[in-house]
């Protein structure tokens, strides 16, 4: 009866192990002299591509008015319940605006569903990834921190339009 050779069966040379170790050592030695790709963060900053999903922000349009109509879809779709909105009435044509719009950045998971569901292109994912808080209260971003002029978000909006 012949025993079928299996892929995991080792040859004698492999079983002695020492040549394999030497191969491994050669590989790591080679790696030691390769160029490094580390980005030295605080001095050198990563500029994300448009596809990057950073901190969600609210868009201020060309007339310096918020686009958001407080429809609550982002809040509804948010899987981690990070978004809290209180709508109110405005005299402007769109009738409705967010009196309070808060994103709890401790809950946010940067999934981008809010951006995807938004009917007004009012909430988009920015390139901002620098978020550190010293307490929970600071992690709740209100409209003051969320509103960003549309000119700073051109990249992302173009990216979104090319995929919608």
């Amino acid at each position: 009866m012949s025993v079928k050779k299996r892929a995991k069966d080792l040859t004698l040379l492999e079983r002695i192990y020492i040549p394999e170790i030497i191969k491994g050592l050669a590989l790591t030695l080679k790696t030691m002299f390769r160029p490094k790709y580390t980005m030295e963060y605080p001095e050198e900053k990563f500029v994300p591509p448009p596809s990057y999903r950073g901190r969600p922000v609210l868009v201020l349009d060309e007339n310096n008015e918020e686009r958001c109509v407080a429809c609550g879809l982002c809040s509804r779709v948010c899987p981690s319940l990070a978004i809290d909105i209180q709508a109110s009435e405005t005299e402007r044509e769109k009738e409705r605006y967010p009196e309070r719009f808060e994103i709890n950045m401790l809950r946010c998971i940067f999934c981008g569903l809010c951006e995807e569901v938004c009917p007004e292109e009012a909430i988009v994912m920015s390139k901002d990834y620098e978020m550190a808080f010293s307490n929970r209260e600071n992690a709740i971003f209100g409209k003051d921190k969320l509103l960003v002029p549309v000119s700073q978000l051109k990249d992302r909006i173009e990216f979104l339009r090319s995929y919608k």
Binding site: T31, M32, T38
Partner: peptide, 13 residues
């Protein structure tokens, strides 16, 4: 340092 180099990193700097 050596662990960093082996892993394409810079190590403590």
């Amino acid at each position: 340092k050596i662990s960093a180099w082996v892993q394409d990193r810079l190590g403590p700097n």
